[in-house]
Design a binder for these strands. Sequence first.
DNA 1: GTGAAAGCGCTAACAG
DNA 2: CTGTTAGCGCTTTCAC
Lengths: 327, 327
Amino acid sequence: MTHAKGGRSVAVTIADVARTAGVSASTASRAFNHPQRLRAETVARVKAAAEDLGFRHNRHAKALSTGRSSALGLIVPDLSNPFFPPLVHATQLNAEEQGYSLYILSSEHNANREQQLARLVSHDVAGLILASPRMSAAQVRVIARDVPTILINAQVKGVPTVLVSADGAIADAVEDGAAKGISGVTYIGSDERWWPNTEREESARSAAERHGVPYRRLSLPEPTYDAAREVVSTVETRSHELVVAFDDIVAHGVLDGLGARGYRPPRDFRILGCDDALPINTNPALSTVHLDTRMAARIAVDMLLGEGADEPQTVVVSGTYRPGATI
Amino acid sequence: MTHAKGGRSVAVTIADVARTAGVSASTASRAFNHPQRLRAETVARVKAAAEDLGFRHNRHAKALSTGRSSALGLIVPDLSNPFFPPLVHATQLNAEEQGYSLYILSSEHNANREQQLARLVSHDVAGLILASPRMSAAQVRVIARDVPTILINAQVKGVPTVLVSADGAIADAVEDGAAKGISGVTYIGSDERWWPNTEREESARSAAERHGVPYRRLSLPEPTYDAAREVVSTVETRSHELVVAFDDIVAHGVLDGLGARGYRPPRDFRILGCDDALPINTNPALSTVHLDTRMAARIAVDMLLGEGADEPQTVVVSGTYRPGATI
DNA sequence: GTGAAAGCGCTAACAG
DNA sequence: CTGTTAGCGCTTTCAC
């Protein structure tokens, strides 16, 4: 290997590989892209040479030449929310497996920034995954026209979607609660029209209705621990109700806020979290909904890279109720 | 805008821009890359044309042509640890500001996978940031020879480094504790030779020594909530000691584990966390060390993109002691 | 089954 | 100040 100024090693090109293998550049290229069209012996010789020289395809040249990128994009609203890291990691693994790398972008829950990021990468990636996007349907459509796009936890007509649904699990939890005698259901989350929030709220509401118990909603300015704790420290409390929290963090806030007032689950109230991904446990152990984000990621990547992108479909990955000691 | 099959819009090239602006491709190119060398009027005309057509540079063509990528890489051991998302986000912002996008890779604390990821992207990025790497110094050097590399929270001779240090803050915390009368210092973390762990342990140890109180270390198989909780639920306890935890999560585990045995801070023991980044608060509020990862990210990106890469330097970003109610 | 040649979109000498 | 030309590394017709 020769060296350039700065002591940094210089790239090995496919021409170098071709030369040492004693073939032309096109043949060397074919050894990687269309090995069937070559004699097995030739393929082996080229690959051996490549190995020897430490050859690696220049991603940019390849993309320029083929018109296809070997990168995917993933936009999430917030890396700090424990829901996303496993999703991100799983996406990365699946992408890698198929020979793609991944641009991970974080929008910080800002719809405009999200769209801006999406536009920024849309021309440089083979496909884009929008996880729990903040964009409007119209904004999503603009992006989807530019680049193959998969939605996770959002619904836009004409764009393929993976839904990580808590619906059935929340129903199960409410049923469990009802069997133990609850006086009502309270959903606590933000009042944003954001799919994860609206789906969970709607699940809680309809489950309450089904069991004939009163339903109410507590709105948080933001679905954070502090906001939740704050709200329940002042709100009028109804005994023996089931609190369905937007996620485990909010549930944690509720637990601590109510705990400070002397209320303990399941004695005084019952509570359900969601996401099952906190680095910290509660006491008593929180009943929650386990969401299989890894599966969702796998499906999303497969849909993106698969053929069936023509007829946009919706796949629902159902979460499961994980009873703890709070229901 | 014309359309290709599949209804996806077709790319606008710089040649298109040049044509509508009535200039040559090179002039159009210069309007973006060397505007000083052009008449202001020309620059304006080209930019207007570009705007009109919705032109965006083809990243791959540009990279191929210049030999420089406009992407940076960032490898972290674990997105799920609350320490990293702010670091990642800040890196992204700074990279973006300078016109770079960011490949974020997660190694899941696996040294080999980490190196593999680093090699994978090393040829496709303008620079690489390794945050709290698991790789050996030798492995880091291999990468650093291939691509400009900055280390965060690791030290390898010859490679520029940003250290997010808890040292002074831990000293301050121990001093605070000592003023209130502690019987000793216990560091609780893993026993890995990983910079963040060894730095904090060493700080705790030397601070204890300085104050003439006994020191000991509790080793966790992994620095998790459960492991910490488990260990302190069985270990012999010494009253009125100061527990220095590897991070807030471990501190949380200690708090809950000791709490279950009826011990409360600061009455029975004192405790310090680290990272100041949990989505959840403790009760009483945890004393912790605030680490300015955003600043670290900014410096890392600047070092990577700046000129001074010739003389590798080490920059230390010192954390600050954030007294809560547990010391 | 393999080679020669052209071209992806852009930038960078080199002329003028 | 601006246009012409060549070429980045790779894939891909099109010949043989």
